[in-house]
Structures are given as C-alpha cells and as structure tokens.
Design a protein around this nucleic acid. Structure first.
Lengths: 128, 128
DNA sequence: CCATTTGTATTATCTCCTTAATACAATTAT
DNA sequence: ATAATTGTATTAAGGAGATAATACAAATGG
C-alpha cells in the first residue's frame, strides 16, 4: 500500500497510523529494522521532521525503539503487536458504528448494509 | 445529541458534519428555520466566525439557504436530503471498509465482526 | 583513520484554524 | 420610529502543523 494522506488531519498522525498498520499486518516484520527517517520521509514525500515526529510517537507507544546510529527496530514483542491490531480494529469498528448511528441507522440495519455491500470497486455511474 | 469535537480535525468541518447529520435525521426538520449563527455558536461553544464558516459551507452544498435578516432555512427539497443521507452513509461505509482492509481484514471477516459485535456500551474491563 | 549514516535538535518561515472584537445594512418586532 | 436581531465582513492576534536548512554526537563501514 502506497503512502497517501487526507487533507483534514495532521500528516504526522496519518503517518503514525499507516506505519502502525504496516506493523500489525506484517508488512514491516517483527524485530526487523525500519528504513531510516530520511528514507521513510523521502518515500512518503514528507519532511524528515514530520516523519521523525510520527516515529517518536510510535516509540512512545512502544511499537518501535531506536538504537542511536544503527537505526530503528520494530519491537519483537509479538503479543504487543497482536493486541495492538485487535485494539485498532475495535477502534475502527466503534467509530464506524458511532458514525452510522449519528446518521440515524441502528445496529441491525448496519449489519445488513455491510452484508449486502458489494465487493470491490464499481464505476461512478453505478455508485448512486 | 450534544455537540462534541475531536482535536485532530478542524472544528468547522465537524460542525458541518454534525449539522448535516441533524438535517438528514430530521432533528432539524425540512423547511424549518435554523437557530441564528450566534445561537448555534453559543450552543456549540465555538466562535461565531467558526460557526458561520460551517454554515456557509452547508449553503454551498445546498442544504440550507439564508434570508438576510429573517434567518437561515433548511432546504425543503426532500429528495436532496434523502440523497444526502444515502451518500453520507455510503461514505462512512467505504471509509470503514478501507480502514479495516488496511488492518488486514477482508470483507467476509468484517461482515462477521459486525454481526457479532455486541450492542450497547460495555465496561472498560469487558472491552479487551 | 575517516567518510558516511544514524537519530536528534534547533531555528526560521509559512499557512491554516480559531478566537476576539467590532462594524454595518437589512429587516423584524415593539 | 426605534431598538433588537439577522447574516455578513473585517482586522488582529495566537497557536499548531509542515517545510526548509542546518548542525551535532555516536556509531558503522570502508
């Protein structure tokens, strides 16, 4: 998955989330070394300072740790990564349900909508 | 539903969304008059300028229109409101599915998770 | 030994969001 | 008529996020 950002939220937050996703899905493997701050920044097309901020936050959370000059490593705590994935999924679900309820949908309707929801991408003309 | 905001997105955007939700759910009724900018701003605890910005955006979308000194009215175009609700729901669903897929879940799993998802609020200790 | 790479820190600048404090014209209410 | 309310506009100030340009110490790699 390539880097991409929405405009209405801080980039460093979105970087944090996307790196988090790469870790819990195993795209960045457990115990592995991350690309350097400058590399990652170049990849994502952002300023190194911005990337550094996201990484510092990941460090605070405990998903990665830095070794001064040899780079940054992903934690080797498999359980932590597993729990993180569960937590992130739950957060996404909670937010989704809240959003739908704000629009007036109830849990039963929501479940149906998801079941029926077509898989894959469709043309614009088919959307409405 | 009371006004509430997250910190990582512009307030005027969230105001826009929340008013939109009130309109499509009928909390603000079709053709009805909205509270004044100053009232709404006081209610929401934001600066009148910020509320004005959100309302101007709603106007651009065509959900409300202003009559100089008699206030702001909600559109009486029932179809427009209906379509808006559909569109908003679809956007929420799309974003949800995208978020889940970024975490490594596939459509089938997601459907199951939603079905099984417990209704109502639970205690913190029950969450994990 | 020495150049390179690492994370990290600093300073400056720019833009966007938010609040604040007014102001004004048009209308409504009294 | 007159006061109050409406949407709207303007100017100023501040704070946060992002970029840019450097800088430095601590390794690492040759």
């Amino acid at each position: 998955m390539a880097w991409s950002f929405k405009e209405d939220r801080p980039i460093y937050t979105q970087l944090l989330e996307q790196i988090q996703a790469r870790i819990v899905t195993g795209q960045y493997k457990i115990g592995e070394r991350l690309p350097s701050v400058r590399e990652l920044a170049a990849e994502a097309g952002v300023n190194p300072n911005t990337m550094q901020r996201a990484l510092a936050e990941l460090e605070r959370i405990g998903l990665v740790y830095s070794q001064r000059t040899s780079g940054r490593m992903i934690t080797d705590d498999a359980q932590k990564i597993g729990e993180m994935k569960m937590q992130l999924a739950q957060d996404v679900i909670e937010e989704f349900l809240q959003n739908m309820k704000k629009l007036g949908y109830e849990q039963k309707e929501i479940a149906q909508l998801i079941e029926q929801y077509p898989t894959g991408k469709r043309k614009e003309t088919e959307k409405a």
